[in-house]
Design a protein around this nucleic acid. Structure first.
Length: 210
DNA sequence: ACATTAAGTGATT
DNA sequence: AATCACTTAATGT
């Protein structure tokens, strides 16, 4: 059994399914910044995250990005579920945020196991539900929150994912993730620093109030 | 010492 | 909140 897998998933599935997952799933360890799924690509595998985190983003025709949410250990990608009920091409991009360990499950197995295992069906529905919630939260954030609140949420999410109150990032990168300009980010960060929420350094930001 | 990249700022729309 | 134009600061060669 892969290290870590036990901890996150073992209690969810019955023994027989667990053995199938372990024998069929392909174990992978990837570095931070690895693209797992691209927009328009065919989805062949469903990733089960054992450790680490993945950034899910949307992109427009010009290549401008917008981060929707992050997924962590014990989570899976809802896009792969969508593709099992028709849609084949991915509508989102998935990039690892930190070094991540995963199990790649062929998508055919998703529906096979849905019929065969009650626990798997629950897991898939539960995951889909959680992703739906996160998507709604992302919409709320973009539609109802001011840019500075949005920025603070982004920083806190990022700190949470990295399990570190100091995050390694440039203002430019934040601007890309939030689909705004670097100048705006710099100004808002400065304001947050004055408010005592964060401390700024070159290439890194310390979150003071988590 | 010089070039490059990150970050700060005023002014304008 | 976006863009421009410019400055200042930090870092690499």
């Amino acid at each position: 059994m892969q290290p870590g897998f036990d901890f996150n998933y073992a209690h969810l599935f019955e023994e027989e399914l667990l053995q199938e997952i372990l024998s069929i799933g392909e174990y992978k360890k990837v570095k931070a910044g690895t693209e797992l799924i691209d927009i328009g690509s065919d989805i062949e595998f469903m990733p089960l995250i054992i450790t680490g985190a993945v950034k899910i983003l949307r992109e427009d025709e010009k290549g401008d990005e917008l981060v929707l949410y992050f997924i962590e250990q014990g989570d899976t990608c809802a896009m792969t579920i969508t593709c099992c009920i028709g849609q084949k091409k991915s509508k989102i991009r998935a990039v690892t945020e930190v070094e991540t360990e995963l199990l790649m499950i062929p998508i055919q197995k998703i529906s096979d196991w849905m019929i065969k295992y009650q626990s798997w069906q629950m897991f898939i529905l539960q995951s889909y539900h959680e992703r739906m919630q996160e998507l709604l939260e992302a919409i709320d954030t973009i539609a109802f929150l001011n840019m500075d609140e949005r920025l603070l949420k982004y920083l806190k999410d990022k700190a949470m994912i990295n399990r570190n109150e100091v995050i390694q990032v440039t203002h430019k990168e934040i601007a890309n993730d939030m689909h705004t300009s670097r100048v705006v980010v710099s100004r808002l960060l400065k304001a947050l620093e004055i408010k005592g929420e964060i401390k700024l350094h070159r290439n890194q930001i310390q979150i003071l109030k988590l």
